[in-house]
Structures are given as structure tokens and as C-alpha cells.
């Protein structure tokens, strides 16, 4: 049974007559990793914004647990149900890694007593040391910032993880460990993980791979990529 579904979704930018995609139908289930591939500018990130509840479809609906996102409280959805890893990371740059993650937990209403301890443990999981955890984001490298963004998305233990090029800035070793985390989140913890990527390595962990080309979504097999 799908946890997140696109039903006849059409999207075009405000003031534009051109559809980015039209009549898209897709189902995303818990316990699986999905990857979405396609050329730059094909609309992958736009799709991810719809799934993350940051934007609404021009026509059709995006439903989460059978509830239309356009009609539900999308602040709550983003805070509690979805963990979003943005391509641009979107971290608070004048705050430390710890502050970013604790704030995210606070917004999500995480009841954990010792949020800092949980944050250190999360950051350690993605390869950020205690010393680096207390540095301001601007004092971290691109790869470290990306790992903080991943940790932040997982901090409130969301059912759905939506990631836009999450391993773009990572070295091979870190990429492998992050992919293991994504895989484990889906296969061991039963979460739904949706990743937009250009990386073949990322598509290798996918249970389903979808391609977006000229506004049309097609399910692909891994060897077809």
C-alpha cells in the first residue's frame, strides 16, 4: 500500500503555459528506496518539492497516507512526516551543526530529553566528529555540510525521506556509508526513501528507479540507465 502517491499531477510554473510534467501517476511505498533520474532541468527537483510539501500541483493531487497535501497542514507534514535533504542544503549558516539539528527537532516537536546527545549520535553516524559538530556551518567543508543536512533530515525520525542529490559533495567512502544509512532506513526501519540523483552508485541501492524525460515519468530497470 502506498504511503505517498501522485494522482494525475500536472505542474507548471506560475505565469507559464508550459507543463513541466503532465498527468503523472506514481505510488511510493514504505520499506523501499526510490531513485528519480533525468537530465538537468527535467523537473526532478520540482517533483521533489511537491513530494516535500513545499509546493502544490497545478492539477491533480499528491496524497500522504491518503490525505491530499494541498489540503493538509503542510508545515506539520514537513516538520513531522517528511525529512527533506535539499540540493542547496539550506542550513542556517551562522549556526553550528548542533544548533541546526536541535532546532529542527524543536520545530518537529521531538520530545527527546537530551536532544544534544541524540544530535551528537546522529552526526557521528554520518561521520561528523564532536569537535566539528560545534563549528558554525560556514566553517565546515561542502561534504561536511551535506552530512549535517542529512543528519538534520533524519533528526525527527520521519516516515518519509526526500533527498535531492544527497551525495553530490561526498567522497566515495562517505558516500558509501550514507547510502548504507538510506538503505537501512528503508529496508530495516520500513521508511520510504525517495532520492533524486545523477549517481549510478545511488541508483544501485534503489528498489525502484524512475526516469523523467520531457515531462513523462517512466519506470526504468537499473541496466537501462
Amino acid at each position: 500500500m502506498s504511503t505517498l502517491a501522485l494522482q494525475n499531477v500536472t505542474y507548471k510554473y506560475e505565469g507559464s503555459s508550459k507543463n513541466i510534467f503532465k498527468d503523472v501517476n506514481m505510488d511510493f511505498e514504505k520499506g523501499k528506496v526510490y531513485t528519480i533520474v533525468g537530465k538537468s532541468g527535467a523537473g526532478k527537483s520540482t517533483l521533489l518539492n511537491l513530494l516535500a510539501g513545499l509546493d502544490t500541483a497545478t492539477e491533480g493531487s499528491v496524497t500522504y497516507e491518503n490525505e491530499n497535501l494541498a489540503e493538509m497542514n503542510r508545515n506539520r507534514y514537513r516538520a513531522k512526516n517528511a525529512g527533506i535533504i535539499f540540493q542547496g542544503l539550506n542550513l542556517l549558516t551562522n549556526a553550528t551543526a548542533i544548533d541546526n539539528i536541535v532546532l529542527s527537532m524543536n520545530i518537529s516537536g521531538v520530545s527527546e530529553r537530551n536532544k544534544k546527545a541524540k544530535t551528537y549520535s546522529l552526526l557521528e553516524k554520518v561521520g561528523i566528529s564532536k569537535e566539528k559538530a560545534t563549528r558554525k556551518i560556514l566553517k565546515l567543508s561542502g561534504g561536511e555540510q551535506q552530512r549535517v543536512a542529512i543528519a538534520r533530515a533524519l533528526a525527527h525520525d520521519p516516515e518519509l525521506i526526500v533527498a535531492d542529490e544527497p551525495t553530490g559533495n561526498l567522497d566515495k567512502q562517505t558516500e558509501d556509508s550514507i547510502l548504507k544509512i538510506f538503505s537501512s532506513l528503508a529496508h530495516d526501519e520500513g521508511k520510504c526513501v525517495i532520492i533524486v540523483t545523477h549517481s549510478k552508485k545511488v541508483t544501485n541501492i534503489a528498489d525502484e528507479m524512475w526516469g523523467l524525460d520531457k515531462g513523462v515519468f517512466r519506470q526504468m530497470t537499473k541496466d537501462k540507465k
Binding site: N75, Y77, R78, A79, L92, L103, I107
Partner: peptide
Amino acid sequence: GVLRAMGM
């Protein structure tokens, strides 16, 4: 924008 995207 970041705070709002996180659901604040």
C-alpha cells in the same frame, strides 16, 4: 525560508 521549509 529555511525555518519555514523545516516546518516552522
